[in-house]
Design a protein around this nucleic acid. Structure first.
Lengths: 220, 220
DNA sequence: TCATAATATGAAGGATCATTCAGTTTGAGG
DNA sequence: CCTCAAACTGAATGATCCTTCATATTATGA
């Protein structure tokens, strides 16, 4: 679907000199701006180049085609996001699960809220991509990070931690996405974040309780 | 963003004769098929017409431009979905909240799972639209339906039902969307649905408990 | 049956764009 | 300072595609 093209999505070459790095940054920034102001279907290689202050040809030195530019942009964004999440997970190893969940939600939500318009634009642009690999890679990475964090939670045991972990991530990420899609006002958004935290924590409590019961039953 | 065009998104005219209704259906079905097989950026007015077995000109009798076709398609889909949800809400008035939540989640998830590929294709296509109105109208309608359902829940009181309602909907819809985006296997998907139900019910329980406490405090 | 409205046709116009490549400029290392 | 590779240029190419409109076909109901 959406066809990755017979050409690879990967960049053509990496910048070796400083000016090339500057150029690349300019291209990415221009892409974001155009995505913001005009949307993906108005985004033109010529316009990107123009806005970035380079020529079209330059773009094609780094990207084999237009989609690969969008792809790289999202890759970059997800990379940064994954790093933030991993850092948070590291920082909260051994903490109570409640703290973990709050931190996870805050990290993710804050990251998305930092530049809300960009977030929205990227959510949109990624839909046009052959994004399975991208999403999958990101998901695997985050799965692993949070899993290893929850694994260190004291006084908690879950029958199926991976399942609980997957559920939490899907719910959190999905909720945030939907919140952005609905463009809730700042107040409603803040309230929603609180409810989401409540919900996740309530879930963890009952999930742990169920596990305790299961252990008891097994012992009998 | 994405520009609705200076032209309106609304259809040009409604079919009066039977053959016109047939034509319209064929056009919609062809659109879905092309969305499925080639993705939005390969979807061409000519190709849609061809697949539908009509001429391009015919399409333009009903839709002022290509985007309005996509728009109408999503409108149609959301209309059907909203109806299902409203029916479920009607059917469960007065039931215990646990039952309500289960029914709501099942209705939504089942509807999305009925034709998973179509769901995915529409999720993608709607991203290219100026979809705020569309989403907002759907959201308002569903909000109202579920709100009036939860309002009839016996033995439950929530400090801020609208807020709880919004939270539930955002979480449920977001989770389902994310589950589709990640293309989880059927097994993982089923498990996730169960966890989502658990989570929502755990949330409702603690939300109601908090309210009870609040009432007591107020009474003192 | 006939007049009129509804529907359908599809070639042609007009515009936009992605992508290339032959040639130029700039930087780095010796 | 000189050489070579890296980086950059942008007009030209070739293709795709949306949309229109003058014309043709089909239904309706009087």
């Amino acid at each position: 679907m959406t066809e990755a093209g017979s050409h690879p999505l990967n960049p053509r070459k990496k910048p070796r000199q400083t000016r090339a790095k500057v150029t690349l940054d300019a291209i990415f920034e221009a892409t974001i701006q155009l995505l913001l102001s005009d949307g993906l279907h108005r985004l033109t290689t010529t316009r990107v180049a123009e806005r970035a202050g380079v020529s079209v040809g330059t773009m094609y030195q780094y990207f084999p085609h237009k989609l690969s530019l969008i792809y790289a942009l999202n890759e970059r964004y997800l990379e940064a996001l994954a790093e933030k999440i991993e850092a948070t997970c590291q920082r909260h190893k051994g903490a109570p699960v409640q703290t973990m969940v709050d931190a996870l939600i805050d990290t993710y939500w804050d990251a998305k809220t930092e530049r809300p318009e960009v977030t929205r634009a990227l959510y949109r642009s990624v839909a046009e991509l052959d994004n399975e690999e991208l999403i999958e890679a990101f998901a695997k990475r985050v799965d692993a990070a949070t899993l290893s964090m929850f694994d260190t939670a004291p006084q908690e045991a879950f029958a199926d931690l991976p399942q609980v972990n997957l559920a939490l991530l899907t719910v959190i990420f999905g909720t945030v996405r939907n919140a952005f899609e609905r463009n809730l006002g700042g107040e409603a958004e803040r309230a929603l974040r609180g409810e989401l935290k409540l919900m996740c924590k309530a879930y963890l409590t009952t999930a742990a309780r169920a596990q305790r019961k299961q252990i008891i039953e097994t012992a009998e």
